[in-house]
Computed example of a mutant assay.
Amino acid sequence: MDRALQDLIDKQAIREVVLTYCRGIDRLDFDLVRSAYHPDAIDHHTGFDGNIDEYIAWVTPKLSAIGGTMHHIGNHLVELHGDHAISEAYSMSTHWGGPEGIGMINFTSGARFIDHMERRNGRWAIKERWAVREWTRSDEGRFVNPEGPGPRGRRDASDPLTTLRSSLE
C-alpha cells in the first residue's frame, strides 16, 4: 500500500482511539474506556498515576457520583514513528451535577491528552497517557434546566446512541 495512504489510515485509527476513550468516559462504559488502552498501559491524570485497571477503579466512583461529563476533542496532531506514535489531542471537558462534599463539581477544564500510542498485532491503542491539565474554571451556578422536553443524554442503555445501535443490530 502507498505509504501516504497507510499513514492516513494509521492516523485515523489513532484518532478513533482518543474518541473511543471520550465516548466511554462520558457514557460510563468502562469496557469501552479499557479498549482504548493496551492491557499494560499507564495513565497519568491530575491526582492519579497507575495502570489502566487502577485508573478505571479510581475514576469510576468519581464519575458515577456526578450528573455527567462531556469531552470535546479539538486540535489533534499525530506523529507516526513506525509502530509507535505520539498523539496530542486538545480537550475541553465539562463535569456537572452531583452531591455536595464529593469535591469539585460543575467545572470545565482545558487539557491535552498526550499519548504514546503503540500498534500491536495491527491494533493501535494507548501505551501511556498524560492528561495534562492546562486550566480549570468553576461553572457553579451557571447550569440551567433544559428549556423543554426532548432527547437527553443518558449514561445507561436508554441513551439515544445505544437505542439506535440496538435497532440496527
Rank of each mutant, 00 (worst) to 15 (best):
H45Q: 03
G68D: 02
G150C: 04
S93F: 13
H71P: 01
T136A: 09
E147R: 15
D115V: 01
D43T: 00
R129A: 03
E128N: 08
G110C: 10
A131V: 05
H116F: 10
W124M: 00
S93N: 08
G110Q: 00
H116K: 06
H76A: 01
W96R: 07
G50Q: 04
G82W: 03
N75H: 13
A41D: 08
N75S: 13
G122Y: 00
A65E: 05
Y90V: 00
D53E: 12
H45S: 06
H116G: 09
T46I: 13
N121D: 14
G47V: 07
W96Q: 07
V59G: 12
L77G: 05
A85L: 01
H38D: 03
A131C: 08
G148V: 05
H81L: 14
V132K: 15
R129S: 05
G98V: 01
E147T: 11
L80Q: 02
E118A: 09
M104C: 09
S109L: 15
T46S: 14
N145L: 15
H76N: 04
G68V: 10
G110V: 00
I56S: 04
T46H: 07
G148A: 14
M104T: 10
G103T: 02
N121Q: 10
K127L: 14
I52W: 04
P149E: 11
D49P: 08
M117G: 02
A111V: 02
Y55V: 12
S64P: 01
D115L: 02
A125G: 03
D115F: 07
D53P: 13
V132M: 06
I56C: 06
G67D: 05
I73S: 10
T108G: 08
R133W: 10
Y90I: 11
D53Q: 09
R112A: 11
V144R: 11
M92N: 14
M104W: 11
Y37C: 11
S138L: 02
A125Q: 07
H45V: 01
T60Q: 08
R133K: 11
H38T: 04
G98L: 09
G82E: 08
G103N: 06
H38E: 02
G68Q: 08
G150N: 05
P99D: 12
T108F: 06
T94G: 05
A131K: 07
I114C: 12
M117H: 09
E88P: 05
Y55H: 07
W58D: 08
G74W: 02
E128G: 04
T46D: 15
I52G: 05
A125L: 04
E134A: 09
H72W: 10
I73M: 12
H84R: 15
H76G: 09
I42R: 09
I52R: 03
I114W: 01
K62W: 00
N75M: 15
A57G: 09
A41K: 05
N106K: 01
E88N: 06
K127E: 14
G110W: 00
R112Q: 06
I42M: 12
H71G: 10
N121G: 15
N145T: 15
I105P: 11
R119C: 11
V59D: 13
R120C: 05
H44S: 12
I52H: 06
A125S: 07
T46W: 07
R137M: 08
I56Y: 08
